[in-house]
C-alpha cells in the first residue's frame, strides 16, 4: 500500500459497484429467460437471423481485450510503463473494434426495418417482437458499458502517460480493469443467449 491510498478499500468499493451491475443485468436476464421459455420457437427463428459470425468475432475480440487489460495491469505492477501503455492501447483498440462490429450489426438490422416499434417488427409474431426488444435493450446496455469502459481506459492511458498511474499507484487502472472484465463477462452470457439458440 502506498502513501495516502487505501488500495484494498478502493478495490472493495469497485466490487460493490459491480454487484449492483450484476443485479441490473440480472433483471434483464430474468425477463429474457421467462420470455424465452414462453416463446422458444419464435426465439429460435429470430436468432437464426442474427449474424453468428459477427457474434463469434466479437466474443473473440472482447476475450482478447480482457487478456490485454490483465497484461496492462501486470506490466504496470512490474514498473513497465511502456509495456502497460501498449497493452492499454490494445485494449482500447479492441473495444473500438467491438463497437464497430456491433454498429454494423445494428445497422444491418435497422436496414431491414427491424428496430424497436418499426412497422416491419410489429408485423412479426409476439415472440419475435420480444426477442428483438430484448436484443436491442440488452446489447444496447452492454454496448453503453463498453463505451463507458473505453472512456475510463482513455483516462487511465493519459494518467499512465503523466505518471500518476505507476508501479507504486495503480489501483485506478486495476479498478478500470475490473470494470472491463465485468463487461466482458456479461458478453460471455449474451453471446450464446442471442446468437446460439437451438
Amino acid at each position: 500500500m502506498s502513501r495516502g491510498q487505501d488500495t484494498a478499500g478502493s478495490r472493495i468499493g469497485m466490487w460493490l459497484f459491480l454487484f449492483t451491475e450484476i443485479l441490473l443485468f440480472g433483471g434483464l436476464f430474468m425477463l429474457y429467460s421467462v420470455f424465452r421459455s414462453k416463446y422458444a420457437v419464435e426465439f429460435h427463428r429470430a436468432a437464426e437471423d442474427l449474424s453468428r459470425t459477427a457474434g463469434t468475432i466479437n466474443t473473440l475480440v472482447l476475450l482478447t481485450s480482457s487478456l490485454s487489460m490483465a497484461l496492462a495491469v501486470a506490466a504496470i505492477r512490474r514498473g513497465k510503463k511502456n509495456g502497460s501503455l501498449i497493452f492499454q492501447g490494445l485494449t482500447i483498440l479492441l473495444g473500438c473494434v467491438f463497437l464497430v462490429i456491433k454498429y454494423m450489426e445494428w445497422s444491418a438490422k435497422i436496414g431491414q426495418g427491424i428496430y424497436p416499434d418499426s412497422p416491419a417488427l410489429l408485423g412479426l409474431s409476439h415472440g419475435e417482437i420480444l426477442f428483438y426488444g430484448l436484443y436491442f435493450v440488452m446489447t444496447g446496455l452492454h454496448g453503453l458499458h463498453v463505451v463507458i469502459g473505453l472512456w475510463a481506459l482513455i483516462f487511465m492511458l493519459a494518467s499512465t502517460l503523466r505518471g500518476t498511474i505507476s508501479g507504486a499507484r495503480f489501483v485506478r487502472l486495476e479498478n478500470s480493469g475490473l470494470y472491463w472484465h465485468f463487461v466482458d463477462t456479461v458478453w460471455v452470457y449474451l453471446f450464446p443467449l442471442f446468437y446460439l439458440i437451438t
Partner: peptide, 10 residues
C-alpha cells in the same frame, strides 16, 4: 468462462 474471468483476470 465467467468463472475463469472472475477467478484469474479479476
Amino acid at each position: 468462462k465467467a468463472g475463469l474471468i472472475l477467478l484469474f483476470f479479476m
